[in-house]
Design a binder for these strands. Sequence first.
RNA 1: CGGAGCGUGGCGCAGAUGGUAGCGCGCCUGGUUUGGGACCAGGAUGUCGCAGGUUCAAAUCCUGUCGCUCCGACCA
Length: 577
Amino acid sequence: MRFSRYFVPTLKEAPAEAEVVSHKLLIRAGMVRRLTSGIYSYLPLGLRGICKVAAIVREEMNRAGASEVLLPAVQPADLWQESGRWEHYGKELLRFKDRHDRDCCFGPTHEEVVTDIIRGEIKSYRQLPLNLYQIQTKFRDEIRPRFGLMRGREFIMKDAYSFDRDDEGADKSYRAMFDAYCRIFSRLGLKYCSVEADSGSIGGSFSHEFMVLAQTGEDLIISCAACSYAANVERAELVPPRAEDIDATEPGEIEEVFTPSQQTVEEVAAFLSIQPSDIVKTILVYVDDSPVAVLVRGDHEMNEVKVKHFLNGQVLRFANPDEVKKLSGAPCGFAGPVKLKVGNIIADNALKARQGWVTGANKEDLHLKNVSLLRDAKITEWGDLRRMEKGEPCPRCGAPVDARRGIEVGHVFKLGTKYSEALKANYVDESGEDRPIIMGCYGIGVSRVLAACIEQNNDEDGIIFPPPVAPFEVMLLNLDVKNEEVSAKADEIYEYLAAKGIDVLLDDREERPGVKFKDADLLGSPMQLVLGRKGLERGIVEAKDRRSGMKVELSLDAWDKEFADWHAQVLEGWKNS
RNA sequence: CGGAGCGUGGCGCAGAUGGUAGCGCGCCUGGUUUGGGACCAGGAUGUCGCAGGUUCAAAUCCUGUCGCUCCGACCA
């Protein structure tokens, strides 16, 4: 492409709306523009980036034996009522009515639609296994879209669905997708890892997430260097205290202590000159509208996902101040398990480690000392209810774990028969018996991958695209557009590269050199070729590796070889990084 | 939805105590420049988010409303 005729509206300043680096750079580089909250237009350069990602995804999906389809974005409500998700999906599902007043929705995911196709077409075990995928725009009406393409409401996703006759086959399909995902993210040049994950509202038995490591990631990943255990914090299992670590000494009599206006754990600890780990935090929540008190150690964090699963609940919300008052009889900050009038009190395993605790007294400005949860409280059940912290023992090998931030770019689920049973997608096996198809589903956030890629590859001058993702692999700068010889040579090199199948953007704008250098760095092509009058006189083209900043001069006399060597060398550098 | 903040030329912003809108970037014209976002001169562009209200007078005060961003519950 020729820059002068292409549409690349670059910006010197980052728009105020952008918070994270990928968002700022996507806008500054003229790749995207926001239409409204969480909804973006892809401009030519952005679309090229998306297409590059999609092409790799497509190749690897095809290679893994999946067949590409394109399913409808607008879907009828009855399908969703059949699966039960019309009720359960929540407000992220964008619902509307058509002119005939029929309920519809915009697909946030396509389990219902594929399963509907499959139940109509698949009758026999002979037709299985099968894997269908698509790359398509999804819509999820997120509560709070943020970080540009990272969490949009409208986004581009690759979603695949596998159909198998039995568990063994389903596991094979899952494995095939897992491997394909590894190949995809490696080819895209991303630093990623796969972690055990919670399966969330899509449902199913087990799942893994693919995370791109980045400080701005919204997810926390627990990983163990010693045994390669890795999991999302939502999921990371904690080992209960070992028998020998338990101090069973029974404390003395319960004692009320005056703690005026000391509401937070930190305040109470400071006021009583004790550690936060000497305190039991009592968190009042509602799970599916019934009240629950969750007990965790003062220095620990409750894990809402774990609590939800522990109670087999769908929705968890915190009690509001009025409800706290009603449930505990005291304002926020003074709830405690002793004589608490909440039927369901669940406690984290870590609280088994000892007996004497400080807790709220369920009375304003009072706490209790010497509380034994076994003696003084009615604990319904104990369990793993908190978030793992950095440095805690790995559930597999006991070594201290590390915590890092990540962006979820892919997710593989083993669904089982959740949808096939709800929608009656059965097949007939060898013995003539009807059986539900075993399903799996596999997503990649294509637009998010582009953002994550920029998040991971940038510097103060702009984007540094890995070659496979770069909208243009080479940017060719003609510094003297008005000089006919220079322009003729630039055109010649442009044609040469194009003929080699290299995506090249020729900057033929009537701009000063400085503008072109700045834009080239901003747009992030991994390779820059610079041709000017001075260089042409000396018979050279200057070549810059965007990532290392290394510049070399390529002789025009030996162009074929010198360019090929340099090109290979830059690509090699990326592979080894 | 709860908490915080912001809406003023295309972009980034300034406009106390009310007096009829300005700066930088960008854009247009001409000239001088031309290897890391040039300079000079001239020029265009605003129903100050929207709707009410107070006032002789509102970007500024009041009320409502819409939109956006950020912090918490969702997820690719």
